[in-house]
């Protein structure tokens, strides 16, 4: 009985110290981590939005489509709709989710993509996050393009030996496009 108490006591003390230490680190790092996340978000927005003079983060529109919530970040030039960016995700990557930012121009063409998070195989699927692949999504006509990989009869050239990863990217885009097409008026008018 006495031994049990002693063991419990020591383990509790060690856990308390560890807990206190982690709480301290959390307080110290919470602020910088939030800033880093915002910076990354901002960077990917800059990559896929056309030149604008407003603040897309505060000028955003929330719509619901297909049981999902979508946030469109709107770019404007002197109040005129210039384009929109949307964060979209496909759960069907080779190993987990593929999360990306997709940019749509006012001229009905795609501006580009920026990969936010992916866990694909390094050297194969992870090549979706290389300029060579991302550039395939620049300047495509939103309506005329068949948003499928070539293997599935579409227009998008997939990466050799990484069809699943490429398909996940294209799926994420085509979902986002559906939401955009369904709510186009709301998005262009803004708030």
């Amino acid at each position: 009985m006495k031994e049990t108490l002693k063991l419990t006591f020591i383990l509790t003390i060690i856990c308390l110290i560890a807990g206190a230490l982690l709480a301290g680190v959390d307080i110290l790092t919470r602020e910088p981590i939030t800033q880093v996340k915002q910076k990354l978000h901002q960077k990917s927005l800059d990559e896929v939005l056309p030149p604008h003079d407003n603040s897309p983060v505060s000028d955003s529109v929330n719509v619901t489509h297909g049981g999902q919530d979508w946030t469109f970040y709107i770019a404007r030039n002197q109040g005129q709709f210039a384009g929109a960016a949307v964060e979209t995700v496909s759960p069907d990557g080779y190993s987990g989710e593929v999360r990306l930012m997709f940019g749509i121009g006012a001229d009905g063409k795609s501006i580009g993509i920026s990969i936010l998070a992916q866990k694909e195989t390094p050297g194969l699927g992870a090549n979706i996050d290389t300029p060579g692949f991302k550039n395939r999504f620049v300047g495509l006509d939103l309506q005329k393009t068949n948003w499928k990989v070539k293997k599935d009869g579409g227009d998008i050239d997939h990466i050799t030996a990484a069809t699943i990863s490429s398909r996940a990217v294209v799926d994420a885009i085509s979902n986002a496009l559906e939401a955009f097409n369904a709510h186009r008026q709301t998005i262009e008018n803004g708030k």
Partner: peptide
């Protein structure tokens, strides 16, 4: 008798610490 749980707590604490600090800085 409780050394393994203690070690695991110490190791997990350091790993979390490295993760958070690296993420922020």
């Amino acid at each position: 008798k409780v050394r393994i749980p203690c070690y695991v707590v110490v190791i997990a604490t350091f790993v979390t610490l490295v993760d958070r600090v690296m993420n922020g800085f």
